[in-house]
Amino acid sequence: MMASNDVLLKVERLKTYYPIKGGFLRRTIGFVKAVDDVSFEIKSGETLGLVGESGCGKSTTGRTILRLLNPTDGSITFDGKDITFLKGKELRKMRKHFQMVFQDPYASLNPMQMVGDIISEPIRNYTGRSMKEVKEEVFDLLEKVGLPPDAYYQYAHQFSGGQRQRIGIARALALKPKLVVADEPVSALDVSVQSQVLNLLKELQKEFSLTYLFIAHDLSVVKHMSDRIGVMYLGNLVEIADKNSLYAHPFHPYTQALISAIPTPDPHKKKERIVLQGDVPNPINPPKGCPFHTRCPVVKAECKEVKPVLKEVRAGHQVACHLY
């Protein structure tokens, strides 16, 4: 993919905390630090993959960037415009430029809406045209995502998971957005259907010159899709690099462990597997210093005190670790 040099999305020190309510009168008694100080950039036309285990804040990051959640702190700059604390009508106007493909193809389509209604709704919201007037555009979109024109008059419950995901993709593309956040778009699908949907996403990227933020927990899927990859752990971005550089030379101990866990198809090839001890700490009360120090195989005294920041170890390869 041809990535130009202009930055489309810039995220700086983003924090999203969920308040925990409890006790008398439901006061806020603490926070789940779902995203804790994440910074990165996405250039126009590229695909940034975001990986990490369940609960590490990938989805929260994606949703906060699209302002479906409110950030606690930090800044989100989209196409030169600060959208961190936009509200109401201003925000609705901006939403046109960034759309989302959701994880669950069953819950992300309104069961009471006709597919034609679902796909044309974004266009109608922004142009005020009627369903009849945008019909041709919807038929074009259906064709682009590989669905028959009949689909227009059908309801979500009449489709399979893969087809529903195509409907979701058509909805996201209806407004010709610049950025599409794909939140685990294939993890709920059959393996046989996964590749079809992934290839569809790639083709559409070429055709509409889209920029993707691709969130997944499957390392091979991310490698297939992305130009650059960010690795998240406990609400923090621990490593971000070009995909080849990341897979060939993972620097962060967590990334090393992740990559060593990718299964290889060759049964005779012996691989050294790094097995991490313990569990992910509770994000309500993350450990002091480096978030990974409780499980790190090469932990140092410094790691328990000082939180490492991202620094460039090679060209275009940043790691947050005290070892480098």
Partner: peptide, 16 residues
């Protein structure tokens, strides 16, 4: 449900 998030993200007002 995610379709509510989707509705918000395609620009529906709270009333809609």
């Amino acid at each position: 449900n995610e379709y509510i998030l989707a509705a918000i993200s395609v620009g529906c007002s709270p009333f809609k």
